[in-house]
Write a protein that binds this DNA or RNA. Structure first.
Lengths: 339, 339
DNA sequence: ATAATAATCGAAAGCGGTTTCGAAAACTTC
DNA sequence: GAAGTTTTCGAAACCGCTTTCGATTATTAT
């Protein structure tokens, strides 16, 4: 590999001058600069980012903690979060940062995420789609390193949220406007995000004088096929079968639709269904799914903005940012007659 | 950050000895080593990988060229290739490599992929799901850097393929065994992979004495919703409507199923449908899709093995590896009566 | 012409490690 | 106890780049 010393030798100047010419320092003669740049070009010079990082104490590298494989979090969360990551990547790349997955291995040894990030001297870390209760992730969150998380309530680092409360409000109101009263929300495991959504559901039901009993809330497990199918069947088997079901997300909704259809019921004639997320998946089935679209592009962009801001200002102050959602009307809901 | 000099000072030895102790050199006394390791631990030492890379001339970093967003290649290719990437990542991480996305930006300037990779001094590069005709990608392929590609026929770098020929043979034979004779293959744009599949289709048809006319092959565009839907409708409108359709992939098949159902036809009663890939997507709809499962785990693992082998041996010899496929029987095909 | 100022350059130290090689100390061997 | 071995250690060079600061030269003002 060509170094600045090679260039210096060929041009007949010092390495310091080469470095300056390459970095647009003012104290280098226009003619000299020209010769250096041309020489660098013709020799195929490529700066060594490791050496630069060493002197500048900045790697232009952002660590990505992004669980892509596990029993629970399968391809479709992956698909959802990868959209966020994609947008995040686009924005950070624009600024010159590279994205590196942070693993738990370095060579032979298992190391913690924090160790990994420190070793690589990442300028910052983005955490998405990860099990936030993992001790390893928490250690990172509580470190001094710039971190931004997606969809995780905590009191140390900045995070980006979709308007979950608002999302469920929109969905619930939509169903109520179609005269549904017996609405069941098959939600995911309770956590902050789920809690917000449930609150949105309950508030909207109450605001419309729809009494909520324990029957209206059914807990299932996110992205657990068996579990979602079972819960759906239980709900369908009830004496007073609901006229509408809100699923925890699009994945569950699509699965639910399959279960409902297999039970011989028609959507939306017999029962209305809505999801949450706005995956393309929901638009590839019949009927098109009515759902809440999360603005993944915006989430990724804001996460990128916030993280790079923290990196540049070294100010880790916790700031929570929420991103608006919107209702996407498919064909999976139908108005019912008022009784 | 703590350096080996800090440790040396506290222990009362030289930095050289610290480095040796940390790297298991034989020429350091057991007692000294113990003191050094303990001191490193208690001071929270974390080696600077940039400095190490500088001396060792090895970054333990693999560049990933993986187009995740474009008009044509949307989320579902992403979903498919991300499984490969996932498996690739798992394996390379095991060996101690980190994965970094290679972008086309470094700071202010747009740089080529090759420049980016050289700058970061990546040990090697994996290319997947990328437009292989992109000048930028080709430049990388023709460089001296260790590269492995997925699903791209070329004569310079090692690549990993699924058994595309075999896949279409299996699908076609399956349909023929169900007495289908009028089978249409709605394939993607012609390229090496598509060519192999078409060959598999044709050979199997011929081997079973099914005459192939131009009507049996319809070209569509991969992952182009409009186009796939249009082509499907054209095929359905034919006088002699086929009894079975082979779609280019699961995405197209799922979309096709929707179009077919919207046309008032039943699957598999009126028409049999098969896909290619083995996405979960195909198992989330009614009826379950019959398809070819590509072994993404194996593809990723073999890509990782081959790439790290090249990195370690510095022998870039082109080796093509193919990975077996298998038929997954869903409920989207039905036997027809022989005429 | 002289003093003051501006433009241009390079020596050298530093970033945080690795590795060679010779020296010193500790053991063996006979 | 002398000679030969083995252990253990550190000085120093090196990896490729940045940046300070003083020196030199060119330019301008007086």
């Amino acid at each position: 590999m060509i170094t600045i010393y090679d260039i210096a030798k060929n041009v007949g100047c010092s390495s310091a001058t080469v470095s300056k010419a390459l970095n647009n320092y003012p104290d280098v003669n226009a003619m000299t600069r020209k010769k250096i740049l041309e020489m660098a070009e013709s020799m195929g010079y490529s700066p060594n980012s490791q050496a630069q990082a060493l002197t500048k104490n900045k790697t232009w590298n952002i660590g990505v903690l992004f669980e892509t494989e596990s029993e629970i979090r399968n391809g479709f969360t992956h698909y959802f979060f990868s959209q966020i990551l994609e947008s995040f990547k686009k924005y950070t790349e624009e600024l010159g940062y590279d994205l590196t997955f942070v693993s738990q291995k370095i060579g032979e040894n298992k190391v913690s995420f924090l160790q990994h990030v420190r070793r690589r001297r990442c300028d910052g870390v983005i955490i998405a789609n990860y099990d936030y209760n993992d001790q390893n992730a928490l250690e990172l969150i509580h470190s001094k390193i710039p971190v931004v998380v997606i969809d995780f309530d905590n009191d140390t680092v900045s995070s980006i949220f979709s308007e979950n409360y608002e999302g469920l409000k929109l969905l619930t109101q939509h169903l109520i406007d179609l005269n549904h009263r017996n609405i069941v929300y098959i939600h995911g495991q309770r956590n902050y995000v789920t809690g917000e959504r449930i609150r949105g559901f309950e508030d909207t039901m109450n605001a419309n004088n729809c009494k909520i009993t324990g029957d209206h809330l059914v807990e299932s497990a996110y992205y657990n096929r068996e579990n979602i199918a079972d819960k759906t069947r239980l709900v369908l088997a009830r004496d007073k079968r609901p006229t509408a079901i809100i699923f925890s997300d699009d994945y569950a909704a699509v699965l639910g639709i399959k279960v409902i259809q297999e039970a011989g019921l028609k959507i939306p004639e017999d029962i209305s269904v809505v999801g949450f997320d706005g995956l393309e998946l929901g638009q590839m089935i019949t009927p098109h799914l009515t759902t809440i679209v999360q603005d993944t592009r915006m989430i990724g962009e804001l996460a990128a903005k916030r993280l790079t801001e923290i990196i540049e200002t070294k100010n880790r102050t916790k700031i929570d940012i929420s991103v608006g959602v919107k209702l996407l009307e498919g064909a999976s809901c139908k108005q019912v007659k008022l009784i």
